[in-house]
Design a protein around this nucleic acid. Structure first.
Lengths: 168, 168
DNA sequence: TCGAATTTTCAAAATTAATTGAAACTAAAT
DNA sequence: ATTTAGTTTCAATTAATTTTGAAAATTCGA
């Protein structure tokens, strides 16, 4: 397979992959493109490469910057802005985990805390079924939260070697 | 908070949560409803509770069964089908991980294997950047694949106690 | 075998999400 | 101060996804 073909393949697959994880296709594609580019790219480069509009490109780059996955780069003597993606995939994964934890897991845990305090007789099977389910989710969720915190702080080498020992 | 109110809260939040993870709102809501119900429910119960159409209910129940998250139940003497969800949240998580691994991670790893073999001089920085990124993703992906395999086989108690020791 | 109860399908409609592109805005260069 | 290159915004459009509901299919009891 030629490089150009392989790149296209990767970009489109990464885009499709993203849609299964609640990330829009274009955002995932821009990320993929920046991941495999040896040099920083401008908005125009990205528009042209992915054949998408200026507005779409701009909004999704901004969103990637919010997620901490892409950096704006000002080259001296150049008026245009350039963009690069973090290439160390372990850092990328940690960053995504960090953001999703903050945006989704933490609010969910707060909600579960409130729901667990529902009024009513705990011996009533309807109440019991509800509280048991909520408690179970909360317990696992809190564990996941702690585990992810540690993961976010970890080095890749540490992650791999430690998990290799345990998960065996 | 009253039970009925708490249930509605949980169902709607679980639905919104699902949409961030590539799962449609209704499917997540039906799953939530079954999770917190003390008894099995019929299609009509679900339709009524969530005020959704028969077709929608039916399709999403089917999808939940495909995912292995919901079981069909035939009560003797009853003509209608009843449905229940696995209540053990650890089993639920393992089942979701198992399916997503099969549907998404494994195909992605296969693709990366092919893309890594791109033609061209590895000293060319364009080729190198591409191959390095692909290799990095593949390496982490394969590690994740192995880790998840072990997790799928694990007991919850084992999971929590082991991880507590490592991630500390 | 027939008929009623129940489940399933799927084309059309409704809803939601993504994308465009032109205008407004901003900031550097002249 | 004005022009110009570049960036951002957002209302309107387009595309994708979800939902409906009625018809078809199936299943079970009489």
């Amino acid at each position: 397979m030629k490089l150009i073909e392989a790149k296209q393949h990767f970009i489109s697959s990464w885009g499709a992959f993203g849609t299964h994880w609640g990330i829009n296709r274009t955002m995932a594609q821009i990320h993929a493109l920046l991941l495999i580019s040896s040099d920083p790219l401008t908005q125009d480069d990205i528009m042209e490469e992915l054949t998408i509009s200026r507005g779409n490109t701009n909004m999704n780059i901004r969103e990637l910057i919010n997620w901490g996955l892409v950096d704006r780069l000002l080259l001296s003597g150049e008026r245009k802005e350039y963009f690069t993606a973090e290439k160390d995939i372990w850092k990328v994964v940690k960053q995504i985990v960090k953001e999703r934890k903050k945006r989704e897991l933490e609010p969910m845990l707060q909600l579960l805390d409130k729901l667990e305090e529902v009024e009513g007789d705990k011996r009533d099977k309807h109440v019991k079924s509800f509280v048991d389910t909520i408690s179970g989710i909360k317990k696992l969720g809190k564990q996941a939260d702690r585990t992810l915190d540690t993961m976010i702080k970890a080095e890749e080498s540490w992650f791999i070697s430690s998990l290799m020992k345990v998960f065996k």
